[in-house]
Design a protein around this nucleic acid. Structure first.
Lengths: 64, 64
DNA sequence: AACATATGCAATTTATATATTACATTATAT
DNA sequence: ATATAATGTAATATATAAATTGCATATGTT
């Protein structure tokens, strides 16, 4: 489940923990999503996208 | 969790069961997603989008 | 009318996302 | 070199997505 979360987060210079706090998740969950070996819920994907200033497609659609 | 799955599926004149079979889910799961009171997994959302010829954004991004 | 097809809905079970806690590793700064 | 922050990772617990089964309610068809 490859995505653009990690690269987008790093461009914004925020940590996994900061992102996690802002979307109401844990650092571990963010880490697993970034690794791409996870199947997150739509709601969490939307929260992450909004927090990173991107859309679902930009982060999760046909990456790679 | 409002979305455009139902209207898109109906335009294609396919049933919930047909869509369910094509994405490897059950009719009940599709029904609940269409009702919008569900938080489906990203993987299932992607499968549905591809099967309906739409992107994630078109089906699930800022609907309503 | 009767019958078939599609959808709604509810109870229970199963699979898995997510939280929690903890410790290890890597990077970054002092 | 040694702190400190950031990330990786693993075990267990909890919440919930999704499957399964079943029956009800439509909606259309003959």
């Amino acid at each position: 489940m490859k995505n653009n979360v990690k690269i987008t987060r790093m461009k914004l210079s925020i940590t996994q923990e900061q992102l996690a706090n802002r979307v109401g998740a844990t650092r571990q969950t963010i880490g697993l999503i970034e690794k791409g070996q996870y199947n997150p819920s739509l709601h969490l994907c939307v929260s992450i996208a909004k927090e990173l200033g991107k859309t679902l497609d930009e982060l999760f659609w046909e990456v790679e």
